[in-house]
C-alpha cells in the first residue's frame, strides 16, 4: 500500500455520479467507468486506479481487477504514448494484415505487445474491428485507419508526433 491514497479526480467522480443514475444497480457503470479512467489517467489502468474504482463501486479490488482483465480494450500495464492496434482477423488477413503489422513494428521500432524503447508506441494485434469491407486497417489511439497499404501505414505512423 502506498503511503498516500490515490483519489479519482473530482471531475471524473462527478461524471461517474451521473453515469450510475442510468442503471438500477450502481455496478453496471463499472465498464464505462473503466473506459473513462483509462482515457483520462494515462492510457492504462494502474492498480491505484482499480483500487479507487473498487472503493467508488463498493466492490473488492480483486473483483474490479477480474472485470478489467477480461476485456481486451483495457490495458493493465503501462502503454506507449500512442497505441496502435493492427487487425489480424480474416478479412484483413486476406488483404495483407501481416504486412501492415510488420510495417507498424518497423516504423515504431517495437514488437507486437511491447512498448517501444523510446516509450512512444505500443503496437498490438487486435481482432476484427468491424471494418472488414475497408481492410486492411489499424486503430491509432482509438481512430480507425482503413484501406491501408504498407506505404500508407508507414506514412501515417511516421507522421505521428
Amino acid at each position: 500500500m502506498s503511503a498516500e491514497r490515490f483519489l479519482l479526480p473530482d471531475g471524473l467522480v462527478k461524471e461517474l455520479d451521473e453515469l450510475v443514475t442510468h442503471y438500477p444497480e450502481r455496478r453496471a457503470a463499472l465498464i464505462p467507468a473503466l473506459h473513462r479512467c483509462q482515457e483520462e489517467l494515462g492510457g492504462w489502468l494502474s492498480p491505484d486506479v482499480l483500487e479507487a474504482l473498487a472503493e467508488y463501486f463498493r466492490l473488492e479490488p480483486v473483483e474490479v481487477f477480474g472485470v478489467a482483465s477480461f476485456y481486451p480494450m483495457f490495458h493493465l500495464r503501462p502503454v506507449g504514448q500512442h497505441v496502435v492496434g493492427v487487425c489480424h482477423n480474416i478479412a484483413c488477413e486476406l488483404r495483407g494484415a501481416e504486412e501492415i503489422l510488420a510495417t507498424a513494428c518497423r516504423v515504431t521500432g517495437t514488437r507486437p505487445g511491447k512498448v517501444s524503447a523510446d516509450g512512444r508506441f505500443t503496437v498490438t494485434r487486435v481482432e476484427c474491428q468491424g471494418a472488414c469491407t475497408a481492410a486492411p486497417m489499424l486503430v491509432l489511439d482509438g481512430a480507425f485507419h482503413e484501406n491501408l497499404t504498407p506505404d500508407s501505414a508507414a506514412k501515417l505512423l511516421g507522421g505521428v508526433r
Partner: peptide, 11 residues
C-alpha cells in the same frame, strides 16, 4: 501467400 508471422509478446 503471407508475410512472416510476428508472434505477440506476452511479457
Amino acid at each position: 501467400n503471407h508475410a512472416p508471422v510476428l508472434e505477440e509478446a506476452h511479457a
